[in-house]
Design a protein around this nucleic acid. Structure first.
Lengths: 337, 337
DNA sequence: ATAGGCTGTCGAAGCGCTTCGACGGTCAGG
DNA sequence: CCTGACCGTCGAAGCGCTTCGACAGCCTAT
């Protein structure tokens, strides 16, 4: 293990000089700098993270808390996580992965131990139990998601309410009067997960204004669960011609079942999905969808966090505007039969 | 920020005593221990991670390197990652998330800086460029995946070769003579990813012994790509009655297309998938499948790593035996037409 | 009664780095 | 030619922890 002192000796300067070359916090003559840099390269020096954290009071680590719930659409989480890690690196930070296992204690542990300089929380519930802890610590943090009360917090999220509204708007604009919403698994709503409830709110509010009916049904993924749900929906509202799906593992089953029942998409029934573009494009019918900008969310979260760490920027709620892409799964409502 | 010294003062003992209470490396009288523990609780003390790493020469962090390739089936990666993080916590370790972005340099950086005590590498290629670095460092590591040459390395992986063999065996046992393999995206093979090539090897070897024909076709996910691939397969081998699918995003399209072509599963065509059980169960036909034990892999990797960190156990290759579950997608080959 | 061995505790020395104040040296302005 | 300002570099002091050796007190075996 090569140390600063060894580099200093090799370059014939003092340790502090090497440190200043590394940090750039004092001016160093070009010749000295080059000599030091040369030594660093020759010796293959890497500053010791622990020592650096101890002396500098910064670990250059960002904690990322991902719950381990299996009822969420995992690829989106993963995409966010990767974006966070990648973006963090470009700012000189590493990412520590925290699962939900530990719960709120993880927040205490991380802030208390100086393990990380800041945190990013995912899968935020409306009344998240981690929030009080976050507010009372002075460690910067960013939520990916929007809790009920966001005062004193920085949040980055897709504007789910607008997303819901957008879906209804699209369908209503095409003349659909009865819309069914296939939602996430019931557990997601029971937890009061922000995005799920907000989507629903946005959806309902817009539907009321447009005078269209909305029937919401949570649904586990998979064919069997969806078959049941779908049957109930048509039972209760036989005139349903529009679907909004916010559950990736229900998308394909829905299309298959509709097909099987002889309901053509988009001639008889229109479907709008809320999912990553990749899913929308790869489905058996190219889906009209509102994209979930996972990468963007991860990137923005890190950038806000870094800004806070640098003393720039304060609390703020950033809601990304949803974008609906029209593809082959939605069209004019059929003439009333 | 509460320090060790403050706890010591509050408890009326020396700093070293507190340290020994925490580490248990020397015996401490019950009364002193309790007094110290009480103080720790009252003050809400958390040891400073940086100081600990510096003095103790261990960061209690495990680095997890996940590539950011998008052509892989992400949920499996995620499941492994979560399992790694969770298991690591039970052993007192945190997990640092490294993406592929940095490439092999990340290995150097992490080992050089003492940021982590050990690493776990995922998505290992047969001739992985990170391996030489791993071998020359004395930092413990575990691969999730199996490279071409595993000498001096510890690897945990599903026995992909046996997995391939098992699939063929099952189909051959049912009388299928012509088997098509729908594989991962071409890029996966071009990279010489271990699991993909090994599966193929196992599959082909077993097929040769059983005297059945195998046609392998890499395939991007999604309907369009699969439609093309499938057409070519039946074109080339009209007698194909068995499919092995190792590409989650091809599973549903395959079932849909077969249905559409009037080929019944499992009456006319049998399908065996290599995928997580959840995918197999949620598909439109309950799939006969070989499970990918993602959690198990993550858990085992961490446990081996911890053993190495504790000075127990050395290099070893752990191959998990594949298990095939028969469900509704495979059956006897149709009588030759 | 005494030597020897435990047990439980303490003080001090560092781990490798950052950062502050100090200090020669150079250069411009008076 | 001298003063002051500034630039580039150095030494030393810590950051909070672990760990080693020391040692006081006690118990047991002689």
């Amino acid at each position: 293990m090569v140390t600063l002192a060894e580099v200093a000796q090799h370059a014939g300067v003092s340790a502090s000089t090497v440190s200043y070359v590394l940090s750039g916090k004092r001016s160093i003559s070009a010749t000295t700098r080059q000599r030091v840099e040369q030594s660093i390269r020759e010796l293959g020096y890497h500053p010791n993270a622990g020592a650096r954290a101890l002396a500098g009071k910064r670990s250059n680590i960002i904690a990322l808390m991902i719950p381990l719930r299996t009822d969420m659409y995992v690829p989106v989480m993963m995409e966010i996580a990767i974006a966070v890690a990648t973006t963090a690196r470009t700012h000189g930070y590493d990412v520590l992965l925290l699962t939900g296992e530990e719960g709120p204690d993880a927040v205490r542990r991380v802030t208390g131990s100086g393990l990380a300089d800041a945190m990013i929380l995912m899968d935020v519930e409306l009344e998240d139990e981690r929030l009080p802890l976050l507010r009372e610590t002075d460690q910067p943090s960013v939520l990916i998601g929007l809790p009920a009360d966001s005062t004193g917090l920085t949040c980055v999220d897709l504007d789910w309410s607008a997303t819901g509204a957008l879906c209804v708007e699209h369908l209503a604009g095409l003349g659909h009067r009865d819309i069914a919403v296939i939602g996430e698994a019931p557990a997601v709503y029971e937890r009061h997960t922000g995005f799920a409830e907000r989507t629903l709110d946005g959806l309902r509010a817009r539907a009321r204004r447009a005078g269209v009916g909305v029937l919401h049904r949570p649904c586990e993924g998979g064919y069997d669960a969806l078959a049941l749900t779908l049957a109930r929906i048509f039972d209760e509202r036989p005139g349903t011609t529009g679907f909004v799906v916010q559950n990736e593992s229900a998308v394909e089953p829905l299309l298959a079942l509709l097909r099987q029942q002889g309901r053509a998409v988009p001639e008889d029934v229109s479907v709008v999905a809320i999912c990553p573009d990749q899913v929308a494009v790869q489905a058996s019918v190219r889906l009209t969808s509102v994209a979930i900008p996972a990468q963007e969310m991860g990137r923005r979260a890190v950038e806000h966090l870094v800004a806070k760490l640098d003393g720039r920027g304060g609390d703020e709620v950033v809601l990304l505007a949803p974008e609906l892409t029209v593809r082959a799964s939605s069209g004019p409502a059929p003439a009333a039969s």
